[in-house]
């Protein structure tokens, strides 16, 4: 059993860290895991993505054509990766930054305004944790408690003051995804 999660957005949206926290939680749960970033001559405001694979056996390819789940934090990421989600998979979209609805009937779509939710919680930089919360509500590969524990154990000391805000963001994201009605496919 293998689960592949691709997280994509602008540099600065916390794409790579969102993947790392999933990877830490998976490792602490005793699973096999790989985290691999797209790396290149990239900079703040450019595109960034990473792929996390969680498995019960030795992981082969660290990259897959059709991931189980995609988190698209901006419009270019939605356009690029929406067609790639494995049928029956999950697509989490940052509704704050896209001007259209979903296009696929065969996957679980969650359009969630992570920017607004994060701002309401007092810090726009929490948007990645809101998205991770929404993802795990739809894709129970790890529990929110496991993510919270991973934050406790692996968040750098200087960021520990944001601990409570991160936990709140995860919960808000999960609550939104669970309450969201089925979105209308264009």
């Amino acid at each position: 059993m293998q689960t592949e999660i691709l997280i994509a957005g602008f540099g600065g949206q916390g794409v790579l860290f969102a993947g790392q926290i999933l990877a830490y939680a998976a490792m602490d749960a005793g699973r096999e895991v790989t985290w691999i970033p797209s790396y290149g001559p990239e900079m703040r405001g450019g595109t960034a993505n990473c792929t996390v694979i969680i498995s019960d056996e030795e992981i082969g390819s660290p990259l897959v054509l059709n991931p189980t789940a995609v988190i698209a934090l901006n419009l270019p990421s939605l356009e690029k990766y929406e067609p790639m989600v494995k049928p029956g998979g999950v697509l989490i979209v940052n509704a704050s930054l896209v001007n259209r609805g979903p296009r696929r009937l065969d996957i679980d779509n969650v359009f969630i305004p992570v920017n607004e939710i994060a701002e309401r919680l007092g810090n726009r930089r929490l948007l990645n944790m809101v998205a991770v919360g929404a993802l795990l509500a739809k894709l129970p590969v790890l529990t929110l408690d496991q993510i919270k524990q991973a934050l406790e154990d692996h968040l750098p000391e200087r960021h520990k003051k944001f601990m409570q805000a991160n936990l709140l963001a995860l919960q808000e994201g999960a609550d939104f995804a669970l309450q969201a009605q089925g979105v209308k496919v264009e």
């Binding site: 790392q20 990877a23 096999e32 895991v33 790989t34 985290w35 691999i36 790396y39 992981i59």
Partner: peptide, 10 residues
Amino acid sequence: DGNIGQMMEP
């Protein structure tokens, strides 16, 4: 290769 260098694994 670049993958092994950039990848994170336990």
